[in-house]
Design a protein around this nucleic acid. Structure first.
Lengths: 258, 258
DNA sequence: TGCTGGATCTCGCCA
DNA sequence: TGGCGAGGTCCAGCA
């Protein structure tokens, strides 16, 4: 690890160039201006910021506020350093989409180059995938009549989270959400239900069996939204479309299963 | 600004406590383990990471990869430092939702406390708001028959981006998107069109005028999706609902207007 | 505070 | 590479 305190632009350039070459993780704290041009374009006047350059090509410009960087460049970008008008300039570019981030330092207070080693993977519990596992292990969590037959079942509108039947053999589309949902989730469920309805709501094997017979008699398709809770607008939409809601919290489910 | 190189846990604690007290922006680079518990829960084993603590309560844990921190805490959280088992521990908590982030350092390589001053605001061009301005200034960009009458017009499904009439007096709902859109945007447009249709598609003044007359004869409502481009699935949905698509790129529009 | 939708969303998966 | 949807999304604006 190398750290420079208040380096001259030339000193900073030398250290930064070496660090980028060596695939180091670099932080630069200093007074700077920032310009971005690409998917949108932005300008940021003079101020003190923390700039992080990662060996995978990510670049972050952080002020003293907010979880989100005020400016950034995604991984895969190329970092380059130079001195212009006696000022250190860091430029990060990428193609597709074509975008460019320029950070010009009036003054560099500190520059650090690190070589972190990190073999560890993060394990996360409480995702939608965990919710799906819980539902498959205990389908009555959705409804006492629910019998799942497939996950990620393909439709013309995209894959359905969990697909199955009710006691009367009607197709059931289940959409899973790990948190309280708004109208968008109901719209999503609606698209899947519509698609299954259009396609006759039969599994592929059923379709083959029926092929020689009469045209498909479209079955009514049930839609169930599984989520801890829903907003008023979402509840109204669910009602409007005749969909069901199963109140399931991934955290509670995880506790019960453990 | 203060920087400690390879401090002992006690030295790090002292410096960190002072820095947090002084509302400093703090970076800690070291070998650590991370645990999160709240909306979900996660574990992260030993590795070298860069931790950023902001005076507004934001906390970021960055590895050498990715734009997104591997763990974090949003602004508004409370940071606290302590020494446990001869190791520096940083805990960031917040209520509502109740969540906690713990970072335990096996070793601190460097700790820096900064006092950044940043008065500058970022200006950004190319947002959906810019697209709206362009459409209002030149409605024929949407269609030669389009006459806007309101923005953010309220409906039971939420506010419509731009509302207006076509040449025949039919209500028009316009949904703006700054980039290529998928099925979700069509679903959104559909919800707004449905809502306006249900409500008669009249402006408030019209409704008052008509109140004494016969019941409202629901007008067919037109829907227009304004976006640079649409995916195949979205195009199919637009067609299915009889909605129009106007190809407008916010970047191109910005150039033309400048 | 909750609801709603935008974002240079990011990220992973899959065709 | 593009399409698609999840995310501890974050975030602003508004009721």
């Amino acid at each position: 690890m190398q750290t420079l305190r208040s380096p001259t632009p030339r000193e900073a350039l030398t250290a930064l160039s070496e660090a980028l070459e060596a695939d180091a993780l670099v932080t630069i704290y200093g007074q700077c201006r920032v310009a971005y041009e690409g998917r949108a374009s932005s300008e940021l006047g003079t101020g003190d910021r923390l700039v992080v350059l990662k060996p995978d090509g990510a670049a972050l410009v952080h002020t003293d506020e907010g979880r989100t960087p005020v400016n950034w460049q995604p991984p895969g970008s190329d970092h380059a350093a130079s001195v212009r008008d006696d000022a250190l300039r860091v430029r990060s570019t990428r193609a597709s989409p074509d975008e460019r981030l320029d950070v010009t330092f009036d003054e560099v207070y500190q520059l650090t180059a690190m070589q972190p080693t990190d073999e560890s993977d993060r394990s996360l519990v409480g995702s939608e995938a965990d919710l799906r596992e819980a539902v498959l292990a205990e389908p009555t969590l959705v409804a006492d009549w629910f019998e799942p037959t497939a996950t990620e079942r393909e439709t013309s509108a995209g894959p359905v989270d969990v697909f199955g039947r009710d006691g009367a053999g009607r197709p059931v589309v289940v959409e899973l959400k790990r948190r309280r949902v708004g109208p968008d989730a109901v719209g999503q469920l609606r698209r899947y239900v519509d698609a299954v309805e259009r396609e006759g709501g039969v599994d592929r094997e059923d379709a083959v069996e029926r092929e020689g017979g009469a045209g498909p008699a479209p079955l009514p398709v049930r839609g169930v939204l599984v989520a801890p809770s829903v907003t008023n607008r979402a509840a109204a939409l669910l009602d409007e479309h005749g969909f069901d809601h199963a109140a399931l919290d991934p955290g509670v489910v995880a506790d019960r299963r453990s």
